[in-house]
Design a protein around this nucleic acid. Structure first.
Lengths: 187, 187
DNA sequence: AATATTTTACCGAACGTTCGGTATTGCCAA
DNA sequence: TTGGCAATACCGAACGTTCGGTAAAATATT
């Protein structure tokens, strides 16, 4: 059989970049074709169900990275809670490229995206909250405290990404990561 | 002269609903025509410069309401700082319809929107921060404290709108408004 | 070892539809 | 009857999608 011109992972990476920046409706197939290096028709060979399947691939791709880099760090029992926190925060910074890259929770949750991927987004957010709640418990917080802190972490990340972009000031995202750290290391 | 079939303010209101839900690229003229009750061609009579001008009108419309309802409340010297805070929070809740409506800072700041309206978004955010900073000063906070609190308010609002939508749980937005209040009424 | 066949990947061209945007005509009130 | 508004019809371009066919490697057959 003929070899692939572009590796799957390179396609996913390019798709992620486009959907993150443009959202579902804003991402055109011509742009996707340019970004991946495949022609439109070839994309339909890789993704027979079309654009929606491409966006699904982005969810899979990102969820896998988040699972490893963030949730994996947060539940790594070989580390102290403080080390887990630090590693996950470092990886968050990396995954969002210091605040330059948007989150698909935002870009794929406009009207149409929410209709298509609403349950994936909801599940994804719940996982973030669940794992951060576990961290809070490991820090000795009460259930209520741990949960509200976890929710606030998610709010902080989403909000600071928007404000950073809007103000064109990445230090806001960085400061938010510090705020999250301070939520567990008080004083 | 012939009277307008649809009042300007009703057009702005409909435009706002569409652009808030769909963003700039996601909002099609056919949908806008349906939402406003005017045909496409009639829209081009009202907005000769087209879609971009329609989005500009949304900015104007929202900025006016924010100016009155939020900034106006925050700088109303006939009220105590605490009353200013309460009134502005109530109006924020109203303007975002309890968390059901998105913010144009979010929906119009995707790639294309940011290119077209980047400076308006930046200015708008800076005004939010400026006015909330003034509130903090009125509460006796230091300059640094007042500013970081103001930024955090904006982050909280943006973030909680996204998380509320994603989790389909409006209590998150409500709780965030309480969090903001507690930022000024400690203990 | 050489040839034929199968299998998979890619691509140019075109599909029907919808996009944002325009002329042109008809309507309506002053 | 004049001037401003709205509606019909329409435009080229771009949209997501599909199709017919080609390129290239793996396998099967001689």
């Amino acid at each position: 059989m003929r070899p692939q011109k572009v590796l799957d992972n390179d396609i996913y990476s390019a798709l992620t970049k486009v959907f993150r920046a443009k959202g579902f409706e804003g991402a055109s197939l011509n742009e996707i074709a340019d970004a991946t290096g495949l022609k439109k028709a070839s994309l339909y060979h890789r993704f027979p169900e079309g654009k929606k399947q491409m966006a699904e691939a982005v969810f899979n791709y990102i969820e896998e990275r988040v699972e490893i880099k963030i949730f994996g760090a947060l539940i790594n029992n070989t580390l102290t809670p403080d080390q887990r926190l630090n590693e996950s925060i470092n990886n968050i910074k990396e995954l969002y490229n210091g605040g330059e890259e948007s989150c698909i929770f935002r870009t794929l949750s406009m009207k149409v995206g929410l209709e298509l991927f609403g349950s994936r987004i909801k599940n994804g957010m719940e996982q973030w909250i669940h794992h951060f709640k576990e961290l809070g418990l490991a820090f000795g917080q009460s259930k209520e405290e741990a949960k509200s802190n976890a929710i606030q972490n998610l709010i902080d990340i989403q909000g600071s990404l928007i404000v950073s972009e809007g103000l064109k000031d990445l230090t806001i995202f960085e400061n938010t990561l510090k705020t999250i750290k301070n939520r567990y290391n008080k004083g």
